[in-house]
């Protein structure tokens, strides 16, 4: 008998209801993507928590950096002029 292959790790994303994005809810192990979907249904939507599920093999995900404090995001840090509150508009100007 050949040694059993470790089941890969899948990340699970659930759309809670129509109109919402899929949101990451956790992970699970499954032999293939089809089994991952069925297991995700049983594990993460036992109480009508979803209308749609995505499963993605964890190793297929490319992430920004090994750290959540990422200089990658620094370029947006000093651009306050991208926010509407940066601009002073007199209060008597309507609909702004």
């Amino acid at each position: 008998m050949e040694p059993s292959r470790e089941w890969p790790l899948y990340e699970v994303f659930v759309r809670g209801k129509r109109g919402l994005n899929h949101v990451h809810v956790g992970s699970l192990r499954a032999a293939d993507a089809e089994m991952a979907l069925r297991n995700a249904r049983d594990l993460y939507t036992r109480r009508n928590e979803g209308v749609s599920i995505w499963v993605v093999e964890a190793k297929a995900i490319t992430a920004s950096s090994p750290d959540e404090k990422d200089p990658f995001f620094a370029p947006s840090g000093d651009k306050v002029y991208r926010h509407p509150t940066f601009y002073d508009i007199p209060e008597n100007v309507p609909h702004m």
Partner: peptide, 10 residues
């Protein structure tokens, strides 16, 4: 069962 599922997937 785990081995059979892995073999099937492969």
């Amino acid at each position: 069962v785990r081995e059979a599922a892995a073999a099937h997937a492969a």
